[in-house]
Design a protein around this nucleic acid. Sequence first.
DNA 1: CAATATTGGAGAGTAGTACTATCTAATTGA
DNA 2: TCAATTAGATAGTACTACTCTCCAATATTG
Lengths: 223, 223
Amino acid sequence: MRISELSRRSGVPVATIKYYLREGLLPKGEATSSTQATYGATHLRRLRLIRALVEVTDAPLVKVRAALDAIDDRGMDVHDLLGSAQHAFFADAKAAKADDTGEREAEERAAALLAELGWSVTDHSPARDQLARAIATMDRLGRPVGDDMLRVYAAAARMVAEEDLRCLDPEAPREEMVEYAVAVSAVMERALMALRLLAQEDASARRFDGDRPAEGRPRRMDD
Amino acid sequence: MRISELSRRSGVPVATIKYYLREGLLPKGEATSSTQATYGATHLRRLRLIRALVEVTDAPLVKVRAALDAIDDRGMDVHDLLGSAQHAFFADAKAAKADDTGEREAEERAAALLAELGWSVTDHSPARDQLARAIATMDRLGRPVGDDMLRVYAAAARMVAEEDLRCLDPEAPREEMVEYAVAVSAVMERALMALRLLAQEDASARRFDGDRPAEGRPRRMDD
DNA sequence: CAATATTGGAGAGTAGTACTATCTAATTGA
DNA sequence: TCAATTAGATAGTACTACTCTCCAATATTG
């Protein structure tokens, strides 16, 4: 298929496709002459993935490209491939400023939690830094988070992550599997956040709105 | 305190504070003369909240301002205040294009899930739209999410949301409580996402890495 | 009281992101 | 043959989040 058909089938303007080509987000089509190239199903799938990533999460293109580059990296086993794609997409641009008050302490709390949970994760993971950053930020706001809260969060995260991995098909071709894993991580992140907000609204209704808030009634068991 | 002290104590450059003042993110200080104003603890707290929001989540300032405006809105009960602050901060700029394939269907699935869970949430919530969008996007990528997966996500979201609400102090002044709620929603979102990634890494290790020594991949045949 | 510093307010400038538009020359389809 | 399409390159646009410079009015210090 030529570029105009790729555009029509993906809903992305030709000018934008050319821009993605220039920026290396999309591999070049196969040139049939000096002013013609053809694109295949891979290009269409890749283009849809790009749009999903930029529309649902609003990640900068540079992160999308980093994740895509990781996916295309040959010569890694699935676990490392998954890890490097996540690393690329979710790494934070602004480096960990290991300078200030409480940041170090927050890192230690994050490490302690991970140790307690017994999760086998690499050091220097961007996710770990982000966890520490969130803890440190809550400290700085004067509202430190308790260990019990972190444990609840970790338990919820684990439930979701098990489910994420469960729906990965080990029979699928490697590249598709990793593409899918990245898509699930990124777009289902939005779903999870939306559900959290919805659940907060429900909980808030039960607490502040439903019946009189002030008296300390025992926790309702409706589950 | 004067602007330079506010800058020193918050770590935010004076020029940036002035910019926030101009943009209405920070209320003006009390003017003591035509070229002097003083700022109080409220300003410092607000400034720290702004920085936490823009640094941890990378929300655009317009969203931060919308959330802040909602917080400052007098004459709402706590539940509605919480709701409008969340609405303001988490609403998506790009309107729901109710046009295309499967979007309507995704909305129905989201509604059905919420009905099944019995959550009392408003219609027209941005979170609901985002949930539908995520479902529709997975469909479009050719990897639709199952109802069982959505239920797991919902259960996890509920656990976290209960915990979020639990740590809200009903005795606290209303404004501080809402500020805190927004901070928890926004910065602990990052913590939850980081933990999900870490849990995915652990699950991936157990699944793809754990029982295989250096040499073998379960199956590889391409190239 | 004079010299120096700081401040509020306004405006312009900057760097980065994600496109979008225009142009040229080659090539294709009718 | 000749309008339409295309690759590739360059330039322009709109937006965001600052950052810088300037001014006149104060405030602080010697």
